[in-house]
């Protein structure tokens, strides 16, 4: 865990994890934290394929149709977050992945040296709370 000279934790790299259930408060929290800490913001939208399969069964819709909607929503949320971050002078990097939420987050934390994760507190996020090697803010 990174700490400064006064032994206070520093968050140079913040990972905001989004799914189709994201809300504006998450974006505000991430941008606010990055502004305060002068951090870089990595924004990851995960297309959770298990969730899409479940939704397709429940809603009796085609998997492809749900996937298309979720992907488009994902890109919109990524660019919306980026727009707010850039307005606040925050360096931003956007990523879209598909698969398992916890696997994607683990991979990003390791690959990019993430210092803190912000995620919506939902069932799928439980494993991230338990296994993450860095602090997690659940909203």
């Amino acid at each position: 865990m990174k700490k400064d000279k006064e032994n206070i934790m520093v968050f140079e790299k913040v990972l905001l994890v989004m799914t189709d259930e994201v809300d504006q408060s998450m974006i505000n929290t991430a941008v606010g934290l990055c502004k305060k800490e002068k951090s870089k913001l990595y924004v990851l939208f995960v297309i959770d394929t298990h969730r899409i399969n479940r939704l397709a069964q429940t809603l009796r819709q085609k998997i492809d149709d749900i996937y298309r909607t979720v992907e488009e929503t994902g890109w919109q949320l990524l660019y919306l977050t980026e727009d707010e971050a850039v307005e606040n002078g925050i360096w931003t990097s956007l990523h879209l992945e598909e698969g398992s939420l916890s696997n994607a987050v683990s991979r990003y934390v390791e690959s990019y040296g993430i210092d803190i994760i912000i995620i919506k507190r939902k069932d799928e996020a439980k494993r991230i709370f338990i296994n993450a090697p860095v602090p997690v803010i659940g909203l």
């Binding site: 488009e72 890109w75 919109q76 990524l78 660019y79 727009d83 879209l96």
Partner: peptide, 11 residues
């Protein structure tokens, strides 16, 4: 409009 265009293109 801008966000939607970026999203469409990225997809």
């Amino acid at each position: 409009e801008y966000i939607m265009a970026l999203a469409k293109l990225s997809r």
